[in-house]
Amino acid sequence: MSVDRWVVCEQCDAVYTRRKLQPGEVADCARCGHHLYRRHRFDVEILLALTLATAVVFVLANVYPIVTIDAQGSRNAATVWGAVIATWESGVGFVAFLSAMLVFFFPLAQIVLFSYVLLALHRGARPREFRQAMKALALMQPWSMAEVFMLGILVAVVKLAGMMEVIPGIGLWSFAMLTLLLAALTSYDLQDIWDIAERLDDREAPAAGSTGERA
């Protein structure tokens, strides 16, 4: 199966024939303005490198305290898990659940699944559970909220700065990096990864591709 000749706008159903784009170019729907498809500046290798960097930063952001506050000698530090446990113990389990899923598990799962998919594509084949991995990535994408949490850290720091000393930790800088790297990673359209995988299949079986190229 080759890359589609057609592309259908998912927001207004208009049909176009696909054109080869330059790196960095985006094709927009002429009817409703939606981004139809793009050709990313990054190729699989850069994307894979980004993913591995994101994994390292994720560990740092979760191991080291994000901020420590000091109220005349008494100190408290917070990490993402610290916030999850504290809200759980404070009796608002739903807030703990949201923080755990949206800021910890979904970003973590995105990093793991991206690594899984990209490592295999880099080696020139689809991973075994490609469909499942892509499905999970698509479902999680809107619910991964590290960047919102980052802004939340800033608001919390300003709220406390008037009352006590706030000391930024390694976790804070790591979290800022994590936000940027995850944004770069998820700017990659999952549909592009599908197209990359299709092109790999074509390269492997050129004969089968050329005979079926009629539609």
Binding site: L151, G152, V155
Partner: peptide, 28 residues
């Protein structure tokens, strides 16, 4: 999804502010 901001702010404050003398923050 940016509306989740205040929920995260509260979660962080709950984690940070739990002192015996200087007070504590709880979520409602």
């Amino acid at each position: 999804h940016w509306s989740m901001l205040d929920v995260f702010v509260v979660a962080l404050l709950v984690a940070l502010v739990h002192f015996d003398v200087f007070g504590r923050v709880e979520a409602g």
